[in-house]
Design a protein around this nucleic acid. Structure first.
Length: 477
RNA sequence: GACCCCUUCGUCUAUCGGUUAGGACACAAGAUUUUCAUUCUUGUAAGAGGGGUUCGAUUCCCCUAGGGGUCGCCA
């Protein structure tokens, strides 16, 4: 397989969403695995849905995730421009060719006319498709209306009674009858192409070898095949990916939950986890392995192992995987990525070495980045004790623990872990306490929380001076 | 409704005719841990149904059912 060229072709109608991410990721993995090229192309042919800033956003999201493309807007390349609104002349030229060869025709029907036609077809239980009334116009009338500059579109004339067969790399042989194919609009009345024309023209001129896209495109493939044929071009290889599904098994959409990649990142999911998890939604290696870095995915990925059936997006498993990466990534990395959440929560930052100790303790019990910040509160900005906790700390037993430590805890650093462990044991023996009775008062005194890390870790984070101050602060007799 | 695609534990999946149908998440129980968390062990749980083909079907074929996608001057 030589010269693999694949493209990710989002439309700038909003943020990158999970479905787009999965498609982009598979494009990227396939390109990297085969040594091919990954191209980004912006499909901004629908002016009404264009969202300002969306292109920049898409590019930034891909960059952030590490899915760098070889050609595209901002990256350049030999097949540019990579934004469809800048390629209008090309689409017009090809549309003209189609018109001249009789494979396309102008249609003057208004959207109202079309709506009415569809309604009638629907009522009669017919297959809803354009009835070709403008195809039967006399050449003179067409000419006259064109000269009058009547608004019109250009439609593709689908052949009658023809079967289109093609091989999808994932689904195998697929066959469809043209009776189901509408005379698709190629050029809209505003002069912009529709997806069908633009994608085929661009895929050809950008020398795309494999069209990797969502399964929702499967049923329009015959139109594209016919377009390639009319234009006299060889068709690319087809790869229709299974859909990502909502828990109710419908196509993942904005209606159910949040699907923008940006928002997952913002919630504190790690890109490594997101990428790893999304890769597994429709692909699986030959063994039981589930944790893969992007590099490892590039090495292992193959289209042959992509599934046919749609996959439900299971948030619980993403959470689990995120926890794995929270513990797996370098400590400094996790700490620095958690920083924004400290700022957002207004938690004061300690010295770097102390921060690292805190994060090391926190990452063991957190699944999302912001939890690191909230877990750190007990050290950096502890909450006030509740009346119940105050009461507990005031008991003679608890006070004996607090005083014993105030009396016996050394005041000068460093305090090696072994020494501290010994000290804790001695305290236990001298006070005749163990378990909860012994540890809860200490935790409450030092971090104002009944639960937290092991004692040596707590002392290590607080430092002996601060620990002493906190203990003294809890003297109640 | 028409056309197309799909169908293994609740979820993600392994299996490329012969397996006690494996793994992971979730769930449950237990162990470790001073607590919480981590970790570990164990358990519950699946081939949609019906026909074929075959010595033998989860695996190949057909039918049915169910789910999904598409049917726009949106992509």
């Amino acid at each position: 397989m030589t010269d693999v060229r694949v493209r990710f072709a989002p439309s700038p109608t909003g943020f990158l969403h999970l479905g787009g991410l999965r498609t982009a990721l598979y494009d990227y993995l396939f390109a990297r695995h085969t040594g091919g090229s990954f191209i980004l192309r912006i499909e901004d042919t629908d002016r009404s849905r264009f969202v300002p800033g969306a292109i920049e956003n898409l590019i930034e999201s891909l960059r952030n995730l590490g899915l760098d493309f070889d050609e595209g807007p901002s990256a350049g390349g030999a097949c540019g421009p990579y934004v469809q609104s800048e390629r209008l002349d090309l689409y017009h030229r090809e549309a003209r060719r189609l018109l001249e060869s009789g494979h396309a025709y102008p249609c003057f029907c208004s959207s109202e006319t079309l709506a009415k036609m569809r309604e009638e077809q629907q009522a009669k239980g017919e297959f809803v498709k354009y009835d070709r009334r403008c195809l039967n116009l006399s050449p003179e009338e067409v000419q006259a209306r064109l000269e009058r500059k009547e608004p019109h579109v250009i439609r593709l004339k689908m052949p009658d009674g023809r079967k289109f067969a093609f091989t999808d790399l994932i689904r195998g042989d697929v066959e469809m009858d043209t009776a189901q194919s509408d005379d698709q609009v190629l050029l809209k009345s505003d002069g912009f192409p529709t997806y069908h024309l633009a994608a085929v023209v661009d895929d050809h001129y950008m020398r795309i070898s494999h069209v990797i896209r969502g399964e929702e495109w499967l049923s329009s493939t015959p139109k594209h095949l016919w377009l390639y044929e009319c234009l006299g071009w060889p068709a690319p290889l087809w790869v229709h990916l299974p859909l990502i599904l909502n828990p109710d098994r419908s196509k993942l959409s904005k209606r159910v939950g949040d699907v923008s990649v940006e928002s997952y990142l913002q919630k504190g999911y790690l890109k490594e986890a997101l990428l790893n998890f999304v890769a597994l939604l429709g692909w699986h290696g030959a063994d039981d392995r589930e944790i893969y870095s992007l590099e490892e995915l590039c090495r292992e990925f193959s289209l042959e192992r992509v599934n046919k059936a749609g996959a439900v997006f299971d948030l619980a498993k993403l959470d689990w995987m995120n926890g794995i990466y929270m513990r797996k990534l370098p400590l400094e990395e996790i700490a620095s990525r958690a920083l924004p959440y400290f700022h957002a929560a207004g938690i004061p930052l300690p010295e770097q070495d102390v921060l690292l100790k805190i994060v090391a303790a926190a990452r063991e019990r957190c699944t999302l980045l912001p939890e690191i910040a909230s877990y750190s509160r007990m050290f950096l900005a502890p909450r006030p004790l509740t009346p119940e906790e105050e009461e507990l700390l005031g008991t003679p037993q608890a006070q004996s623990v607090v005083h014993w430590f105030a009396d016996n805890l050394p005041t000068s650093e460093p305090l090696p872990k072994e020494e501290l462990d010994a000290l804790v044991k001695t305290g236990m023996a001298e006070l005749g306490l163990k378990g909860k009775d012994y540890y809860t008062p200490l935790r409450l005194a030092l971090i104002h929380e009944p639960h937290g890390p092991e004692l040596p870790v707590i002392f290590g984070i607080l430092g002996l001076e601060r620990a002493h101050a906190l203990l003294r602060d809890k003297f109640r007799r």
